[in-house]
């Protein structure tokens, strides 16, 4: 594979600054609504604030890759005397939890950095976080070119895991007939 220049977009998360308002969740779900902004539903957001106010735990987490099966071993972190739940920092859309899945279909969600045309100056969640808990940064890096799995493929893969390939094919065939 050849090396290419790639723009790396990162969001720096400062958990100490988070005030738990969940504006980030709200606006993410609204940005991805169809038509855009026509609705909102934090349960569809690609960022989740893992919060336990009584333990002073506030961790904004971005949805990462879909995974077919849960981890075999799980980690528990204690930071500054605060014990975080298993999976608290994990970005995976994983069978062991409800985070990062569409509430009705169960399809996995993944942060796409608010990809849109024209490109936004800053992702929406960052724009709406006035607490500066989410800071957007860009940098250039040389990386090996890889074939990026399209979103539809990620979705399909999870459907296949859930229902089996044949069922999906049958459904598609049936839907085609209806058209």
């Amino acid at each position: 594979m050849s090396k290419v220049k790639k723009k790396i977009k990162t969001i720096r998360i400062d958990v100490d600054k988070c005030n738990g308002c969940r504006s980030c969740e709200m606006i993410c779900s609204s940005f991805h609504a169809n038509p855009q902004y026509s609705s909102n539903n934090p349960a569809r957001s690609r960022i989740r604030v893992i919060r336990d106010p009584h333990k002073d735990i506030y961790v904004p987490v971005y949805a990462g890759e879909y995974t077919e099966s849960e981890c075999s071993g799980r980690d528990k972190y204690t930071i500054n005397g605060k014990e975080y739940d298993e999976c608290a920092f994990c970005r995976a859309s994983c069978p062991s939890r409800s985070e990062f899945k569409e509430p009705d279909s169960g399809l996995p969600l993944k942060c796409d950095m608010c990809e849109s045309d024209p490109t936004l100056e800053k992702p929406l969640c960052v724009q709406w976080c006035l607490a500066d808990a989410l800071i957007y940064e860009e940098r250039e890096e040389e990386v090996e070119e890889d074939v990026k799995q399209e979103e539809i493929e990620v979705g399909l893969e999870s459907m296949v895991d859930k229902y089996g390939l044949q069922k999906i094919l049958d459904t598609v065939a049936r839907m085609k007939k209806k058209d």
Binding site: N19, C21, P53, H54, K55, D56, C129, L130
Partner: peptide, 26 residues
């Protein structure tokens, strides 16, 4: 411990309070 907000608001009008020896409240 922390200044906290209501849903979808940046204003942080509340706080988590932990008095040593007592349960946390807000």
């Amino acid at each position: 411990t922390r200044l906290i907000s209501c849903y979808n608001c940046p204003m942080k009008c509340g706080a988590t309070i932990t008095v040593p020896g007592l349960p946390t409240y807000m």
